[in-house]
Amino acid sequence: MEIKSSGTGSSSENFSDTERWGSLITGGALVLSGLSQRSLRGALMAIAGGTLAYHGVAGQKSLQDTVTAATGLDKPLRVEKTVTIQNKSAAELYQYWHNFENLPTFMKHLKSVTVMTSTNRSHWVANAPLGNSVEWDAEVVNDLENQLISWASLPGATVENSGFVRFQAAPPGRGTEVKVVLEYSVPGGGLTAAIASLFGENPEQQVGDDLRRFKMLMETGEIATTEGQSCGRRS
């Protein structure tokens, strides 16, 4: 039986729900619907045992934050996408993804990811409009070999983001299911514009396309493209 906490803090709730978040994230279910009232970052931290540290950072809500929350401007943007990849084991896919420096190969908006050796931190650079770029540092929150990697941006990121990728065997002969769940939020609101500057107008499609490119690369050794092909007059 679940015990609801009526206190102002949510740490006790986090602990009692840890098992539930854990099974959502490592199980087969649709994750985001289960997280409807809860941040992905919080859930990831909770299952990684980082609950207190996370709430230490989040602190008490300011008046500004309360207003933003009331107007819905701080509503995080969440994306969940799954593909099935043939003829590759969870271990092979995990190995490729585990080196974050491979991610820009198939994640179109990423310019580079640099792993800081001997830490669980990395530096991310993404393309922004007009040749600009956005940079942030991230930290691996949880790393379950051949199964799951989760990460979150460190304090100070313009766009706070967190996510996980999960590798899971499909029924026999059906390959490996790869699920990506991402959450973005902007401290103080203004999320829509910030996200659009990073990912274009349809982040969900972007993430879906990134995952499809990962599948193409793993299944065929290359990413299908028409960029650079011939065409006639466009107008």
């Binding site: 043939q86 193409m216 065929t220 299908a224």
Partner: peptide, 20 residues
């Protein structure tokens, strides 16, 4: 592509990996 679930089952026009 010749290597996806559908190509492996002779369902070539349903290839998973060729539509950009």
């Amino acid at each position: 592509c010749g290597s996806c679930f559908f190509c492996n089952r002779d369902l070539w026009s349903l290839c998973d990996n060729s539509n950009t």
